[in-house]
Design a protein around this nucleic acid. Structure first.
Lengths: 300, 300
DNA sequence: GTGAAAGCGCTAACAT
DNA sequence: ATGTTAGCGCTTTCAC
């Protein structure tokens, strides 16, 4: 401790998360932990529990506690939600080495390690199309983060490239409440048009499970049918989604395995390199990690 | 920082978890965070990623970094697994205020905040029995932690009190691998006896989902039938389990909502009180928090 | 090669 | 009230 004071180094890095209770945060944290333990640095963790003012407060406290560097998963505000990123600006401009994880802030220059969301969304949508979908729809939260923007972009690129319905159906949810009837309302509205989607790309794993449940409820036998490559009829729309959850049973979906643990590992390594001064990079440098696509549609 | 040195206080508490990737750990962490943010103390977090030697190393590092107090969720070794708890002993005996969460170490005197596992297991088992189960079985991991011991005890108390099969069927899994065929082997073995359970108490949420899936696979129509209070036939064994997961759809089970967030909050408050010297307690003091039982069997 | 001294930045105690 | 000083414990430097 006195050691830290004298040497001007604390061997501690700060970690700021919007919310630990999201499952994927833990995997990022696990990755960070691995490298941190290996390199003998400690972690000072603060989460913002879905409140952007807590993020600001946490950032300021951490800077006070003199950390050597900062890992940040920025808060995800709903589009239109007031969000004050001055604390982040302050932190970034204080000159402390920092790396963003999973998403970055377009206006603020930082290093970042993120997933290949656009590519994965495009490839996954192409898989839906290859499986016979002609009216794929996009479902996700309406959050202002780069990650989700990229996924929508990838989805749109794929549907356009395939010459499908333009604009494709899309639903951007404006609240986080899992009990909200918003998805059901959308589905019944779609059902009314007679142009019900035959495939869905869902931005988040939990939403996909809810969607699957609602679809079953709506029509146990399977609403739209889709001609598979082999010519046989399959029942119900296909679901593809970002994320995987319980490894305990098959989901019947196409899932994008997000490399969260690797994001955490890489970001920490990059941060430690920045701290050690091994890498001197003035400019924002964004590292993009590929994602794996798991097709589980045969097992349901 | 110099402030900390001079005042002999760091306003930082150490938190040691066996594994952040378990979903319930985040809820404990969220509770800790809430109180910590409120009281202006920072968290130094270390996880052991399911490796008991990492736990030891983390504990030693944390003690070095001079934290004001320690929150610990002890590592959960399989019964029979070599587990060296000397680092914990060292930490506890160093005199630093510390509080265990969710489980405690019988041999080592510490304060702890835990759930009412035995009561919840008993009440839940009584619910199974009240719903018509005559041959309930227990399924869980064979871990040497107080939490799981209590659950088994509660289960056994309830079955004995009701005068049911003695000893009740029970399966204690000896590995964590979700793909392991162990549960399926147990089920087919049970099916062979002709005395298939008509209800299950499962110690962990993920296991319950796997069990439900295996039961459906084994017999889509429902294997054992059970007479409900109302006299109508229900298909398939009932499942009760500790934990709840996705709020996105009904599970059809009886779930025990574990008050993890509250455990975190209470433990942190207790720790801060100990640090402030408001409470001087030489002896181990264990605080037990009640759990809520959610019956979702009507919705599947 | 070994030992002594200055100082990291702040705060509590003391002196003015 | 306001200002000054000693010292938290370690490390680096400088002197021997």
């Amino acid at each position: 401790m006195a050691r830290s004071m004298r040497r001007g180094k604390t061997d501690t890095i700060g970690v700021v998360f919007p919310d630990v209770s999201e499952a994927f945060m833990n995997r990022i944290l696990a990755g960070i932990e691995t490298v941190a333990l290996e390199q003998g640095v400690s972690l000072m963790i603060a989460t913002s529990t879905l409140d952007s003012s807590a993020e600001a407060r946490n950032l300021d406290t951490l800077m006070d506690r003199s950390i050597d560097g900062l890992l940040l998963v920025p808060y995800a505000p709903f589009r239109g939600e007031a969000y004050d990123n001055r604390a982040i600006r302050r932190a970034m401009e204080s000159g402390i080495p920092s790396v963003c994880i999973d998403r970055y802030l377009p206006g603020i220059s930082t290093h970042a390690v993120i997933g290949a969301d656009r590519d994965a969304a495009r490839l996954t949508t192409e898989k839906l199309i290859a499986a016979g979908c002609r009216r794929p729809a996009y479902l996700g939260f309406d959050l202002a983060i780069t990650t989700l923007d990229e996924r929508r972009r990838g989805f749109n690129n794929a549907t356009k490239a395939a010459g499908l319905t333009d604009p494709s159906e899309e639903k951007l949810l404006t609240e986080r409440n899992p009990d909200s009837p918003d998805i059901m309302e959308w589905l019944t509205e779609l059902a009314g048009t007679g142009r019900f989607p035959d495939g869905f790309l869902v931005s988040t794993d939990g939403l996909a499970l809810k969607l699957r449940w609602l679809l079953e409820k709506l029509s146990p036998a399977g609403r739209a049918s889709r001609r598979t490559g082999a010519g046989r009829e399959r029942s119900g729309p296909l679901i593809a989604r970002f994320g995987e959850d319980s490894p305990y049973f098959p989901t019947g979906m196409i899932s994008v395995r997000q490399p969260h643990e690797e994001l955490g590992r890489r970001a920490t390594k990059k941060l430690l390199a920045l701290i050690a001064g091994e890498v001197i990079l003035q400019n924002q440098q964004i590292e993009i990690i590929d994602m794996e696509i798991i097709d589980d549609t045969q097992h349901h």
